[in-house]
Structures are given as structure tokens and as C-alpha cells.
Simulated assay, not measured.
Amino acid sequence: MSLESVRAFLAEHAPDIAIIDQGASTATVSEAALALGVEPGQIAKTLSIRINNEVILIVARGDARLDNQKTKAVFGGRSRMLGAEEVEAVTGHPIGGVCPFGLATPLPIYCDVSLRDFAEVYPAAGSRTSSVRLTPGRLATLTDARWVGICVPPAPAPVPPITAKL
């Protein structure tokens, strides 16, 4: 049903966007990046959180993490991740397939500016094996999302020391 609600949403709002079904799990950022052959940052993860008494969705690059202080400053309250059952109840999507398309309940959607680090990103498409490819700008436009800066990008990998052989 969840994949079908995404299909219906895309058919109405973006018929040019195809659903990519890998036939293998794309439920985690690392699985999705491996299956799609892209960097983990290009996976657009959708976080379901509650702030004060409101549930919102935040779409961010896959390897970024939510910054609690920035989130509190932007939204005026402490964020709390929803449990799996509540996520599925409000979004209509299972964990691992949560996306901002075809939602069971209208929710405010925010795109973190970290997505703009990539020309194309890959959010899930309502199931644990499906995704779509689109630009961050198109993602925000299709979902009527507002841009926020509340995530911390990953730390750069340490550079190994250079050892010279004489």
C-alpha cells in the first residue's frame, strides 16, 4: 500500500519520475548507497520527529546527523524521534521506506540544506526496496518543503600520515 501511495503521488505530481526498485534492501543508508551505487550522502533520509506536540518530517543527506541545538533554535523545542509504529501510522510508510511522498497524514516537511551538496539525491519511495532519483530542489518543490539548516555533515575522514622510505 505504501509503495502504491507513492506511485499515485508521483503519477499526479511528477509523472516523469520513475520509481527504482532494487529488489534488494535499501532500508538503511549504507544498503541504499550500495544498491544504487552512490555515496551515502546522496541518500535522502527522512526523519520523523516530534517537536512540542507536532510531528514533522526532515529530509537530510544520508550521512548527516541532526544537531539538537540547531533543531531547538529553529523549531522552538526539543526534538524526539518517533517509534516505528507511530512512524508507520502517521506516514503510511514502513521504517526503511519512509519518504515525503504519498503520506497517510499531511505533515510539515523540511529539507535540510545538506541535501544541496549533491546534484541528485535518492529518497525512499514507500518500501524497503524502492527509491527515486531527483534534484534536491525538485524534492523540496514536490513536497512543498521549507529549507532549514539543522544537520551536521559528517566529519572528513582522517588523512593517514605520509611515511617516507629512505
Rank of each mutant, 00 (worst) to 15 (best):
A11D: 14
A32Q: 10
G92H: 03
L34F: 01
G92T: 03
S5E: 13
I58R: 02
E12W: 09
T129W: 01
K45G: 07
G126K: 08
P154N: 09
I43V: 15
A145H: 11
A33M: 06
E31M: 07
P108V: 05
I51W: 09
L36K: 05
P161C: 03
T28Y: 10
G126V: 11
A89L: 06
T143W: 09
T46M: 08
A157C: 04
P100V: 00
D112G: 11
D117V: 06
A14D: 07
G97S: 05
I109Y: 06
I17T: 01
V98Q: 00
G92W: 02
G62P: 10
C111V: 11
E88T: 14
S25M: 09
P156E: 14
K70M: 13
P100F: 02
P161L: 11
P100Q: 08
H93T: 01
P160Q: 10
R50N: 10
W147E: 09
R133T: 01
P158K: 14
G77W: 13
R65I: 11
S114W: 01
D63W: 12
I17D: 02
F101S: 04
P156A: 13
V55M: 07
G83V: 00
Y122K: 10
L115N: 03
R61L: 06
R7D: 00
V152W: 00
R7E: 15
L139C: 09
F9D: 04
P106R: 08
T129Y: 02
G96H: 10
V113F: 04
L3N: 00
A32C: 10
S30C: 00
T71F: 04
F75S: 03
V87E: 04
A44E: 09
L36Q: 10
R61K: 14
E85R: 00
P158H: 13
T28N: 05
L115D: 08
D112C: 12
T71E: 01
D67L: 05
P100L: 02
S25K: 10
A11I: 01
T28Q: 06
D117A: 15
P161T: 13
S130P: 05
K70Y: 02
R65F: 13
S25V: 04
L142P: 08
E85Q: 05
I150E: 03
G23Y: 07
Q22E: 15
L134D: 04
V55E: 14
A18D: 13
L103E: 09
F9N: 04
A14V: 06
V152Q: 15
R65S: 15
Q42T: 05
L47R: 02
Q69F: 09
A125C: 12
P136G: 08
L115C: 06
R128S: 10
E86D: 13
A44H: 07
L10W: 04
L115A: 12
P94R: 01
R133L: 02
V113E: 15
E120W: 05
E31I: 03
I19K: 12
